[in-house]
Write a protein that binds this DNA or RNA. Structure first.
Lengths: 193, 193
DNA sequence: TTGCTTTCTTAACTTAAGTGAACGAGCTGT
DNA sequence: ACAGCTCGTTCACTTAAGTTAAGAAAGCAA
């Protein structure tokens, strides 16, 4: 598991042994069971999450309905907005599958960054990259119909459609579960002809 | 104009005179006329934009139609994804109003950051903050109907509805211009009763 | 296995968005 | 002032999503 994390970091900066040891000593890794709530809506946290294996999701409760807005799978990083804004979280984070996560506290990160300013550079690169990605995703979403969004997901994250419950997928696509069912039936129909 | 920029920066880091002078010497400010294209789809750029006054937008061309996905107004910063990914831009950036912008080249930024590592910290803070904001915006969009999105915009950026053409607003809201017209007529109708 | 619950699909109906076309208002430049 | 263009709204029609409810299928626990 260490190596997965080190390989990920190696895409941004080069670590020496001292730095690797410093990271290792933090005991970042945690096994979490499916269904575990990592952050409850209304609570504050300073924790960030990095998925080594498995899948976690963020969801809001609106009118008693869960609205899933994002899934994080292997090599995805999630720093909840509430960590940045220091306010209670608007959403809940929960475990979709049994997962292995790296969980880091922002105070701990600040300390590591103080010792090794290199990490600040990595954080800068990473968040710039994630921001660029997020903007493109948002733009794609805005300019697509539900059907196009589903087809796009089929191209870009086909695994998600298999490993995640349909009603969570539906709200992730910005529609209701019956709409997703119809949409898929429609596509199958087209496929036949 | 310098002061607007310095005040903005002051929210993240404290600048001494030397650093202010370094920034001033870069002659970042540009007046741009309404309609000016700042970046053409398909082109590469290393420029980032910061709006001191006015409004710029990003749009895609799909099936011969302009699809506007974002507006940047006073104190908004835009680093196009193509600057990060080093690929041709998917969208065009154009000036909605006569504007005053700070335009900075990424090589220039790298040089300044080398001299004053403090700027790296600011960039990290800024992009983390923008990422958090973008995620919340995206979530809000996903979990809202077109009508709710319009009402939300009315709350959060009422100026946009006044200063921007309706057909650009429509695609910004993820709908077609006639839908926006109907939606507004519907709301006015409700308002009366 | 049985019963319980959660999940997915289907159906019928309502509502609203997409589409294409037409019209009028406002702007621009000559 | 006039012609030409862009822009916003409206209309009629099509298509698809929202909603509610019901039933089938799958997973879970006793």
């Amino acid at each position: 598991m260490q190596n997965i994390l080190f390989d990920f970091i190696a895409k941004y900066i080069t670590l020496n042994e001292e730095e690797k040891d410093a990271l290792t000593s933090l005991s970042l890794f945690h096994s979490v069971k499916k269904g575990t709530v990592l952050l409850e809506a209304g609570q504050k946290t300073k924790n960030s999450f990095f998925v080594l294996k498995g899948c976690i999701r963020t969801f809001y409760i609106q009118d008693g309905e869960e609205k899933t807005t994002a899934f994080y799978t292997e090599l995805d990083a999630l720093t909840p907005p509430c960590v940045i804004t220091q306010t209670p979280s608007d959403y809940t984070i929960s475990c979709v599958e049994d997962s292995i996560l790296s969980i880091s506290h922002s105070d701990m990160e600040a300390e590591i960054n103080r010792q090794f300013p290199k990490f600040d550079i990595m954080c800068k690169m990473l968040s710039e990259e994630l921001l660029a990605k997020e903007r493109i995703d948002f733009d794609t979403f805005k300019t697509s119909s539900p059907e196009q969004r589903y087809l796009n997901l089929l191209q870009t994250r086909p695994d998600l459609i298999q490993r995640v419950p349909q009603h969570q997928l539906a709200s992730f696509l910005g529609i209701q579960p019956p709409s997703l069912s119809r949409l898929r039936a429609r596509l199958l129909e087209k496929d036949k002809s």
